[in-house]
Design a protein around this nucleic acid. Structure first.
Lengths: 64, 64
DNA sequence: TCTGTTTGCAATATATATCTTACATATGTA
DNA sequence: TACATATGTAAGATATATATTGCAAACAGA
């Protein structure tokens, strides 16, 4: 898994569609971001982070 | 200023062109990101952050 | 003055994120 | 069984990030 969107979303017990609507995106976009197959925009990443109560680093930053 | 890319880059005394080349982007793209007029991709944001020795939150996160 | 460096800005072209629509599958529940 | 919900996936259309090229301005140094 390349990011922590899916885990965090499931912890909050909300669906892909609920998250999508709250950030102004579609369910498909959320699904692809969770799979790590997308390179989402910064604005969308920030909207998702705020909605999930996390920061950019907590959801997307990778330490090596 | 919407993000801290320009300040951080100038602290490191590197040019837009040097940063652009090291992250595989163009000078124009870096310039527009610094002005906050762009919505860059997550991958580019991470490349810039790594190159500047910062994290996503340090460069792009906004607390309100 | 002249020259090189850095940055801003603009027009056009290209790549790709995102949307729209649709169908399939798995799961839970009546 | 039947129905609803949640998710995966795919094709085509649209929006926009990014590249390319070029020109201009500001500045420093010779």
């Amino acid at each position: 898994m390349k990011n922590r969107v899916k885990i965090t979303r499931m912890d909050l017990a909300i669906t892909q569609e609920q998250l999508a609507k709250s950030v102004g995106a579609t369910r498909q976009t959320i699904g692809l971001i969770e799979k790590g197959e997308y390179n989402p925009s910064l604005h969308l990443c920030m909207a998702i982070a705020r909605e999930l109560g996390k920061t950019l680093d907590e959801l997307f930053w990778e330490v090596e």
